[in-house]
Design a protein around this nucleic acid. Structure first.
Length: 507
RNA sequence: GGUCCAUUCGUCUAUCGGUUAGGACGCCAGAUUUUCAUUCUGGAAAGAGGGGUUCGAUUCCCCUAUGGACUACCA
């Protein structure tokens, strides 16, 4: 019988959501939806010291923007709650006691200071079968002594008791079987004295079991501790329902080596967070994809292909398509360098797909800022003419300002190149000809283009000698869409005004 | 140091023993265009090294090298 697919994304609320975390969540989501499963949002806040206010809300808002909905979890509800680990204290205590009772864990009194000292003293010290008998714990102390110490309020941790020299196999969907000898594992702390909370390892296994998680899809950084997790399932007797593991390769720095960090974004000038984030402690602001003008679907598409591909050449995919095509087996085993340039390209593609009216709405604030009035319909038309040359809405203004503002100056190099001795004569002739056109003729792109060009030919004028200075006069530079796509929208009066002004200014 | 994971164009990647090693981003060139872009066409660009296995290895195995992750009372 196939088990119901239930996967989770379980971040720690220690700050903004890293883009690598977004990818992990995305893969979980794609996998869940493909299998008609459930996607659960759990908060792993068992480290009270690292808690950052606002982080949870930030993460939630990020997924909302990205268009990745959860079925269950913190703020979504569900039958397996609470979904915040800090609210599950009692649950963990019970399972820790179970481990203690059946001898898979023991109590240790060694303080962090003592352990530090030990590590100074012994190179590569590891708390394990080879050393636990020389430490202060329930294995070396008498039962009474242990009870006394606890009664006296002495702090203690609970450690897993790892039997050495056992072969542990982690079945990984992406990597195959990973074999590890248990001797290299240490007696990991499962329950902390500092805040009376379990560590990640314990909480993770208990929650995944209780929440009936079927697949654990997480970052590669967890692979080394996966053998411990397998052992814990065994200790609890839950091996038959143990989730299947899939460890995802990491997102790497674009240049050099190492995994992608927030610093790389600052250094190279690109966001590593979905949304802008303000560190509540330092007030430091980190840019976000949303604020940088990215479309969520572009970010998703880009991220999806960093470490996965459908096995063919298809690159542009909707969420629906990705849900159909996604395969954990097709995830790459090696890390992917973060190629920001390609991210821009994805945004370019999705910008082209966007409806012009939608883009107009996004562009309106910029227009207001520039003090320009324009109705939405006309703006959408203009955007339709210029968007092919843009990757971001923020690039619109530079490509279309001349539809609203007459040039104040003229590109010098262009003047030098295109403004010849007889240019004033040609432009004056053009002005005179345009005067003879009706508004109706002029405002039609096709008609005005046809008429002006044939006029040029009939006069024996070189087209370039007329059109280039014409453009220079109207735009202020040699750039922009087709000339008549500009002038038709500007209208005859404004066009002529600009040409006359150029004639005065340049000549 | 130890353990584990990885290694195809600059980058993301395809290839499930036999291919002129394919695509995309970026780059370069040409075409189109009255301009700049867009677009189109073309180009340069890769199997880390060494051993095996095999009629034949990018593909399977081993070693080396390189890179990465982990090695906390953090996740």
């Amino acid at each position: 019988m196939e088990r119901k697919v239930r996967v989770r994304f379980a971040p720690s609320p220690t700050g903004a959501l890293h883009i690598g975390g977004v990818r992990t969540a995305l893969y979980n989501y794609l996998f869940a939806k493909q299998h008609n499963g459930e996607f659960i949002f759990r908060i792993e806040d068992t480290d009270s010291n690292r808690f950052v206010p606002g982080a949870e809300e930030y993460i939630l808002e990020s997924f909302k923007w990205l268009g990745i909905p959860f079925d269950e979890g913190v703020s979504f509800g569900g039958n397996y709650g609470p979904y915040r680990q800090s609210e599950r204290k009692e649950i963990y205590r019970k399972y820790v006691d179970q481990l203690l009772e059946n001898g898979h864990a023991y109590i240790a009194f060694d303080t962090p200071e003592q352990l530090d000292a030990k590590r100074q003293e012994v190179a590569n010290f590891q708390y394990d079968a080879s050393t636990r008998n020389s430490m202060t714990n329930s294995l070396t102390l008498s039962k009474e002594e242990v009870e006394n110490r606890i009664a006296n309020g002495e702090k203690y941790v609970v450690r897993a008791m790892i039997t050495p020299n056992q072969e542990i196999v982690v079945h990984d969907i992406i990597r195959g079987d990973v074999h590890v000898n248990s001797s290299i594992l240490d007696d990991k702390v499962l329950y902390k004295s500092a805040d009376n909370l379990p560590t990640y390892h314990l909480a993770n296994i208990v929650d995944d079991h209780l929440m009936e998680i079927s697949h654990v899809i997480r970052g590669e950084e967890w692979l080394p501790s996966a053998p411990l997790h397998v052992l814990l399932y065994r200790f609890f007797g839950w091996e038959d329902t143990m989730p299947q593991f899939a460890h995802l390769s990491l997102l790497l720095k674009p240049d050099g080596n190492g995994k992608l960090s927030k610093r790389d974004g600052d250094r190279l000038g690109f966001p590593v967070f979905p949304l802008q984030w303000t560190d509540p402690k330092t007030g430091e602001i980190s840019s976000g994809y949303r604020e940088s003008g990215y479309f969520p679907e572009a970010v998703i598409n880009f991220l999806a292909l960093l470490g996965w591909n459908p096995g063919n050449d298809q690159e542009i995919m909707s969420m629906e398509e990705m849900i159909q095509l996604f395969r954990l087996e097709k995830c790459s085993r090696s890390g992917a360098k973060f190629d920001y340039e390609k991210g821009k390209w994805f945004n370019h593609i999705y910008l082209q797909k966007r409806d012009n009216h939608n883009l107009a709405t996004r562009f309106m604030p910029t227009l207001k800022e520039k003090g320009v009035e324009c109705d939405a319909e006309k703006l959408a038309t203009i955007i339709g003419l210029i968007k092919s040359r843009c990757s971001f809405v923020s690039e619109f203004w530079d490509q279309c300002y001349f539809y609203f503002l007459a040039p104040e100056s003229y590109d010098e190099k262009a003047v030098q190149k295109r403004w010849k001795e007889d240019t004033p004569n040609l432009l004056n002739a053009l002005v005179n000809y345009i005067e003879t056109l009706s508004d109706e003729e002029f405002n039609s792109i096709e008609v005005s283009e046809k008429m002006v060009i044939s006029w040029c030919e009939s006069q024996g004028y070189n087209l370039g000698a007329v059109m280039n200075p014409f453009r220079l006069s109207v735009v202020g530079a040699l750039k922009g869409p087709h000339m008549f796509e500009i002038t038709a929208l500007l209208g005859k009066e404004e066009t002529l005004r600009r040409v006359r002004k150029a004639l005065e200014t340049i000549a």
